[in-house]
């Protein structure tokens, strides 16, 4: 949907107001959404759309999706959490999922970075280098 420049600017300002020491404040986000939905300024649907996209982008940055072929042991999970948070220099929340298609190893996605150490990716890399 095409939204006006003004609505885009406002949504960016609202998003900035929701940040507290480099982190997204959930209570502020819900407050912003409810007050915008109530007061209904001009182009508020587009504004909320753009706001939602910015929030989703930020949430994605704070979250790591960890895929593995088999469920990971709790000790490995906490180790992964610590090393990833250290690498990215921010507290990440980890979401674990099991994907047997990977065959082995793990695949971690943080924001738009993907660290692929799965057997499937290695086999594919081998396939392209040999063909």
């Amino acid at each position: 949907m095409k939204i006006s420049k003004e609505a885009r600017r406002t949504s960016r300002q609202l998003f900035r107001a929701c940040m507290a020491d480099g982190k997204l404040d959930e209570s502020r986000v819900s407050k912003v959404v409810s007050s915008v939905a109530q007061s209904k300024p001009r182009g508020y649907i587009g504004m909320l759309d753009a706001f939602a996209r910015l929030v989703a982008h930020e949430v994605d940055r704070q979250r790591a999706l960890v895929e593995s072929a088999t469920p990971l042991a709790p000790a490995t999970q906490s180790e992964l959490q610590a090393s990833l948070s250290k690498k990215y220099d921010r507290q990440l929340t980890l979401d674990f999922s099991v994907n047997p298609e990977l065959l082995g190893g793990i695949r971690v996605k943080v924001g738009s970075d993907v660290w692929d150490g799965s057997v499937k990716a290695r086999l594919e890399a081998l396939k392209t280098s040999l063909s």
């Binding site: 970075d113 993907v114 660290w115 692929d116 150490g117 081998l126 280098s129």
Partner: peptide
């Protein structure tokens, strides 16, 4: 060395 595969980092969208 070309055939060795390690963990790869990529940027996706």
């Amino acid at each position: 060395a070309g055939l060795k595969t390690a963990v790869t980092k990529s940027n996706v969208g």
